[in-house]
Structures are given as structure tokens and as C-alpha cells.
Amino acid sequence: MLEKSNIMSGTNFTLGMEFILLGFSDLPNLQGFLFGVFLVIYMCILIGNGLIIVITKVHPALQTPMYFFLGNFSFVEICYTSVTLPRILMNLLTQNQHISVVACAVQLRFFLILVVTECLLLTVMAYDRYVAICKPLYYQVIMNHKFCVQLVIGSWITGIPVVIGQTYQIFSLPFCGSNKLNRVFCDMLPVVKLTCGDTFVNQLSVYADAVLFALVPFLLILASYVKIILTILKLSSATGRHKLFSTCSSHLIVVNLFFGSGFIVYFRPKSNHSEELNKVFSLFYSIAIVTPMVNPMIYSLRNKDFIEAMRKLFSKCIGKE
């Protein structure tokens, strides 16, 4: 690692530099406990979302666009979490908080790509519910398999050029001052703050990307649900209204959890305690303690078709044994 004098000089030592992820360094006596907690969380995320992927693939009753998107969403959740949590577990286990600038850049790049993918997939899922409820007669025509695959591929690749350009722009700059990141992973805003000179343009581009790939999808989801709610309220049957609302409730909960924590990290007004609070919220937002872990529970416990498919799958597995 570079000496402090070299880092302070402002010379571009990027390739040989290391960051220090402060993470939970202020809780030295809880490192083992935190390792156990995050390991359990990670295993729950892998098993829960993996189960969703398997069930939506093999059960005939779940071969619909809604469950096709759900299976892909669960796969993104697994990838999304795997970008940050294994590194956090390794740091807690080895007590080594150093991360090279290359490793940091790679982690940030994949993290941002998956964040954009998740935002866009949530938007696609909202559009699917909009077509199903507001245009039911055209649902099979509009949401055909080819179009669904195109939507998923588009969600994966749309943000890649922008993210690669953004991370290259940031890591091509020299770093100066402290090399300490008050995070448990390499997040964009803390990294930008360590760069030398006027970082206004870089910070502005970060917020512009947040608007483009987070705020705009959120507004599209909001618009979809405004139309969905207006359509449902026109129904005369209370049972029909309840059934349609229930098909959207799981997705709405996930949207609120994901976008809520993200907006708090990037758009919350600054305060004296903003760094510590941002670390907490980025933890929820990034390693996905909230969304990926509760996603299987939200979709399984609130969906009768999914519960039935799970019951049949378990019965078949037990029967084979």
C-alpha cells in the first residue's frame, strides 16, 4: 500500500494504490458474530432465490410471463448479492480490510451493472402487470415469449456501456488525501470523493446516472400502478378487486424496499451523521439484506400458485426418497 505522503501528494498512483474499507472496524469484538450473521443471510439468499428459479422453471402452472420475469429477477438478486457479500465475509474472517484499486473498480462495475438491471427488471415486471390488468384481451399477444426474452436481455445490457464509461472515468483520475472508504464495499460516491481536484463533474454524472437508471424507472413503475389502480377501482366485484390487488402487492413491496433504500443513499440531504447513516443504508441497498433475502418470502407467502407449486415440488422430492 502507498505511504500516506505519496497519497497526499496528488500524483496519479492509482495502479499501485489500495483502499481501506472501514466497514465494521469500529466493532472489533463483533467480527465473528457479524461473519456468522452475514453468512446465514447469504445462504438464505442463495437458497431462497435459487428455489424460486427452480420452481418457476419446472412447474407447468408457472410458465407465464410474470413468473418468467420473477425467475430472472431472482437470478439477478443472487448475482447482485454475490458481488459484495463474499468480499465482506472474507474481510470479516481475515480481518484484512484492504482492497486494491483494480478489485474495487471491478466490484463497483459489476455492482452498478446489476443495480441497473434490477431497476429495469422491476420496471418490466410493472409493465407486465399493467398489460395483464389494463389490457387483458391483448396480454397473450403483447407479452409473447419472444418479447419477454427481449425485455430481459434489454434489462441486462442497457446500462453496461454507461456503467463501463462511468467507472473508467472515475478510476482514470488520480486519488489523493485519505485512502479510507467508510463503507463495507466500493460504492461510487465515496470513491469519487477520494479523487483529486474538482470532482463536481464526476459527482454530477453520478447523480445523472441515478436519475436515468433509478428515478426514471421508478416513475415508470409509479405511472403503471396509477393506471392499474384506476382500472381495478372501476371493477364492480370486490372479490375481483382484491384478487387483482393481491397479484401486484408482492411486486409493490419489493419496489418500495429496493428504491426506498437507494433513494435514501443518493438523494437524502446531508447532515453531520450522513456518512454513518449512508453506510447503514448502503449496506441494506447493496448487499441486499432487504430485497434478496425477503424476496422469496414475499413472493411465496403471498402467492397461492407459488405455494402450491412449492408443495408439489417438495412432495415429489420426498416421494422419490
Score class of each variant (00 low, 15 high):
residue 155 S to D: 02
residue 217 P to K: 04
residue 6 N to I: 06
residue 54 V to L: 12
residue 199 T to A: 13
residue 22 L to Y: 14
residue 131 V to Y: 07
residue 266 Y to R: 11
residue 252 L to T: 09
residue 273 H to P: 04
residue 281 F to V: 03
residue 7 I to P: 02
residue 285 Y to D: 12
residue 51 L to H: 12
residue 307 I to V: 09
residue 245 F to M: 15
residue 277 L to F: 14
residue 245 F to V: 15
residue 273 H to D: 15
residue 248 C to H: 04
residue 130 Y to P: 08
residue 209 D to K: 13
residue 2 L to T: 02
residue 293 M to Q: 05
residue 260 G to P: 05
residue 129 R to S: 04
residue 143 M to L: 12
residue 8 M to N: 13
residue 299 Y to I: 10
residue 116 V to L: 03
residue 73 F to T: 15
residue 191 V to L: 10
residue 65 P to M: 03
residue 2 L to C: 04
residue 247 T to N: 07
residue 39 L to K: 09
residue 32 G to T: 15
residue 56 T to N: 09
residue 44 C to E: 02
residue 81 T to W: 00
residue 65 P to Y: 04
residue 248 C to G: 03
residue 220 L to R: 12
residue 75 F to C: 08
residue 203 Q to F: 11
residue 78 I to P: 04
residue 269 P to R: 01
residue 100 S to C: 02
residue 168 Y to H: 15
residue 200 F to Q: 10
residue 138 Y to I: 10
residue 139 Y to D: 10
residue 22 L to K: 12
residue 33 F to A: 14
residue 281 F to G: 04
residue 37 V to K: 01
residue 235 L to R: 07
residue 99 I to M: 10
residue 307 I to M: 13
residue 308 E to Y: 10
residue 15 L to C: 04
residue 316 K to R: 15
residue 256 N to H: 12
residue 220 L to W: 10
residue 39 L to N: 13
residue 214 A to E: 06
residue 241 R to K: 15
residue 82 S to D: 05
residue 57 K to Y: 10
residue 134 C to I: 01
residue 193 K to G: 11
residue 242 H to P: 10
residue 37 V to C: 04
residue 258 F to H: 14
residue 272 N to Q: 11
residue 96 N to G: 05
residue 60 P to A: 03
residue 245 F to C: 14
residue 26 D to Y: 01
residue 231 T to V: 04
residue 189 L to D: 08
residue 263 F to K: 09
residue 194 L to D: 11
residue 6 N to A: 14
residue 127 Y to V: 03
residue 92 L to Y: 01
residue 293 M to G: 01
residue 121 L to P: 04
residue 230 L to D: 12
residue 261 S to Q: 07
residue 80 Y to N: 11
residue 40 V to Y: 05
residue 311 R to N: 07
residue 155 S to M: 02
residue 271 S to A: 08
residue 174 P to Q: 06
residue 127 Y to N: 01
residue 315 S to E: 12
